[in-house]
Design a protein around this nucleic acid. Structure first.
Lengths: 156, 156
DNA sequence: ATTGAAAGAGTCTCAGT
DNA sequence: ACTGAGACTCTTTCAAT
């Protein structure tokens, strides 16, 4: 299921190109890679079937939509065995957009997007802190996002 | 430039729907929202011109592509005035996919994607640690990603 | 501003190689 | 497997409202 499948150079070139520009047409991408648009189509279909290409996601200007606050949460659990249960509770909070189980200081790491500081305070104090199993959290508010990009996949 | 523009309910409904499913056709989205496909098209063009909709991004299964390690870095700077210069150096590292200037313990927060632990060690020790202005870093390796989604934009 | 239809461009399928 | 062409679908434009 997971692990590396047998992807050839063309597969990797397609992924590489589409991670830089997801909107390129099959015909144009084919020209760039010296194959037909039909071949690009077949390969992408295969990559989707394998679950390697999961889909596309709309990227928006959150600030312009009134979402002014991005924050990161370092979460301490009472017992790390509570991860699954806490994760399930955190997933129910729509403002939480990312959640990772991590090594190091914190048991888990979350990212949260809010309209303003008041909403952040509400979510942290009245929702997150009431979840059973969370001991305490540390909040890092983003003052500026300088980078947010796809990883550059190598061709080998 | 930034700040809220005059977006009406339809604009927000379009953004809301496309953040859940970026691949829906204008015709289908129009049916769902009781307007024509042409209207959807005009609105999306406007949202793109305003820079509210920035584009789409391909999402892939990084593990399947051999990128087994996601880590978060808390970065301490010697002086926080060095942010811009350090940010510029970090941007040159292709494995760094995200960078935020933050309040709290760390001066900045980065996300890094690597093929394996060896590559992570190389990037941290031989590249990141050699950047002028970085005092030290703390590394949080993700053992599991339980959530990675778009924020759910509200319709008001 | 929105519509509906026509033109243009892209995706998808398939027979041939 | 890849190609090229045809069928199909989607995007884009535009005259009318």
């Amino acid at each position: 299921m997971s692990g590396k499948l047998n992807l050839d150079k063309l597969d990797l070139q397609i992924i590489h190109a589409m991670m830089e520009n997801a909107e390129i047409s099959y015909a144009d991408l084919g020209k760039q890679l010296f194959v037909s648009g039909g071949t690009i189509h077949v390969r992408i279909k295969k990559l989707q079937e394998y679950g390697i290409v999961k889909g596309t996601r709309l990227t928006v200007d959150l600030k312009a939509l009134g979402y002014d606050v991005i924050a990161f949460l370092g979460i301490y659990l009472e017992k790390s065995s509570l991860y699954d249960s806490v994760a399930k509770d955190l997933e129910k909070i729509p403002e939480i957009v990312r959640l990772n189980y991590t090594t190091g200081n914190y048991s888990m790491f979350a990212e949260i997007v809010c309209k303003d500081i008041n909403q952040l305070r509400y979510v942290l104090h009245d929702v997150v802190q009431k979840i059973k199993g969370i001991e305490r959290t540390e909040t890092f508010i983003s003052l500026e996002e300088s980078l947010n990009r796809n990883v550059r996949v190598s061709l080998d």
